[in-house]
Amino acid sequence: MKFKGTDTYVATEDLMIAVNAAMTLERPLLIKGEPGTGKTVLAQEVAKALGKKFIEWNIKSTTKAQQGLYEYDAVSRLRDSQLGDDKVHDISNYIRPGKMWEAFTADESPILLIDEIDKADIEFPNDLLQELDRMEFFVYETQQTIKAKHRPLVIITSNNEKELPDAFLRRCFFHYISFPDTETMEKIVDVHHPDAKRELVRDALKVFFDVRETPGLKKKPSTSELLDWLKLLMSEDLPEDVLRSKDPGKLIPPLHGALLKNEQDVHLFERLAFLSRREQR
């Protein structure tokens, strides 16, 4: 069964090829791209499309590779021993399975998302090489081997905060999600807001891409902001041609606060709009 996108996710041709290759060869898939280009939701959508279980491991700067395998809760054990709890004699009571363990022991091959891997220490990916390759690991405390019943499809996202180690990269398929072009964006909008008027969407997209071109923005609005903004526009029931206004007094699009989240950017944008208004006079 192949992934072709879903009714809530638009997959470009190249993304489909990458996902399906990773699935066929059972190798991890590394996804990079600007924030908001749908990296995180991709794994969910693949799971949904293929009817598979979805397991999500969110990485933080303090996350250790070991935590994905299991953790030995020594502090609880110490406490139990102080309290004279009988549980203390069986060490397996203090082994807490991590997300990889969960993925390996699932009944059917699940989708495992390792989200924002670059947040962690530089060594993090290297620490997982063996486990991702062989899909098994050893639990010292209990002397047991956890081996994947079915190899999960591992999807890894990165925002490129850190370089990833070569050895790790060699094992992955890689896909860079480019910022959607107008056509793709139209489709994305369509799956989220199927009821939006075509005219409105077209006008909004034009404004959106224009705003993205504003030189000097700290944070360019992304897909999420566009979707939020559209939702607002739709709910406000504004006059049909509001985004097409040639009236220089209305150069600032309505509700632009939804597109630009950063105060500095809002100022910058307003100033530019003001300047071009003066020019037009």
Partner: peptide, 16 residues
Amino acid sequence: VNDFYYLARATLVKDE
């Protein structure tokens, strides 16, 4: 061939 191009890209390139 487009598919081939995409596949080769996903396999051989690891950095944008």
